[in-house]
Design a protein around this nucleic acid. Structure first.
Lengths: 205, 205
DNA sequence: AGAACCATAACCCAAAAGGGTCAATTATTA
DNA sequence: TAATAATTGACCCTTTTGGGTTATGGTTCT
């Protein structure tokens, strides 16, 4: 028996979800809340297996609510159920610790499957969401750095000084300087920290 | 009709997959290859809808093969089918541009579902893999930086010099220096580039 | 009331970084 | 064969950075 709690401000949606869950063998909706605050209060006494979370909540929004819940109950699995397919909401929710992300047009069957999947250690996502998430890993076409320049860039990301890089790559500090000048020109930056930021953000390393 | 190509060095597995796909209505295995090189040659003439890719290939491994394929045919969807659940393989594959990642213990039904899902724009993953991927977004418990220190750290990541930070935050350069010393101590680093690397990697910004 | 922390600011000094220019060797490619 | 690119190295100079110390006013918590 999987116990579920729902945080959703729309009365109709909340009721329908509750009926769906309670009407299915093996699932039990043990509590529903129209906002973040009440859910937090409840969790002090009883912890469900899975929380279904809306994003568009009044006062404290769903993302913040996830953060607050995970802060206290870090192992609790939260499944987002949202109308938003917007990139930022999805990534914010996952960064906050959500276990999965379904769009609200998911079928009742899909929702139940997802709850089961989350309970079994999976991370259920609507297919467009999954594609978005997986796509975020993809590396962009790399800038034309030479192999040696990539080696130097790697050292920069490790925080090495010119001297340390020179020793690591068995070249003189002057040559390190030379390579770094090249790197700065190609990446269009003017300092180590900028280069490091760009390298990591664009996954050049 | 979804056309599928298979890159897999194990003869038996390759044959079984081919039989599974051709034996199912709506699916067609149009080509199979024991290594990367032959698959690339073939794609010059015909492009399947989906490629099933093994990771443990001889000579050029699966990750490199994905990179090579995506370099020429960036819209081709590649589904990894691997025995490895190792973090690094998964993330490397997704970074290389894989559309999904299944473990080899997936059932025939699951494999067919996944091909269909990838074809429909999804990103099918085995549940442990999905959990791993989603989990990688989660922010760790943040180090005890003060609000002001976070502001300074943000400026560092933007590549700002002490002087620029001072102007941006309306404080003296000396105070910027003070905050940065604090940040270095708390993050256990000794330079801007190290701080930036750590901040980005641990998603402090 | 005192302790602890935050944010502010200053001074000293050595080390590191960044920008400019020049030049030689090797390898690859046109 | 000539041109191009990669890799290596050097010298000049200024600015930036990092580590040390000290100090003040404000807040918050005990």
């Amino acid at each position: 028996m999987i116990s579920v709690a729902i945080v959703e401000d729309d009365d109709e949606i909340r009721e329908n979800l509750s009926l769906l869950i309670n009407g299915t063998p093996g699932f039990s909706c043990i509590a529903t809340f129209p906002n973040c605050k009440e859910s937090l209060k409840y969790f002090d006494n009883e912890i469900p297996d899975i929380v279904l979370m809306d994003i568009g909540l009044p006062e404290v929004n769903g993302i913040e609510c996830i953060k607050l819940i995970k802060k206290k109950y870090s192992s609790l699995d939260i499944l987002v159920l949202s109308i938003h397919e917007n990139d930022q909401y999805v990534f914010d929710a996952l960064c906050a610790g959500a276990t999965g992300y379904l769009t609200k047009d998911s079928s009742p069957t899909r929702i139940l499957d997802a709850i089961k999947e989350a309970y079994d250690g999976g991370a259920p996502m609507s297919s467009q969401i999954a594609r978005m998430v997986v796509g975020s890993f993809k590396i962009q076409p790399p800038p034309e750095l030479t192999p040696r320049e990539f080696e130097v860039l790697n050292e920069l990301v490790k925080g090495s000084s010119y001297k340390v890089i020179a020793e690591a790559l068995f070249i003189s500090e002057e040559t390190v300087r030379r390579h770094i000048k090249s790197i700065y020109r190609k990446l269009e930056v003017h300092s180590k920290s900028e280069a490091v930021a760009k390298a990591i953000k664009e996954r050049l390393v």
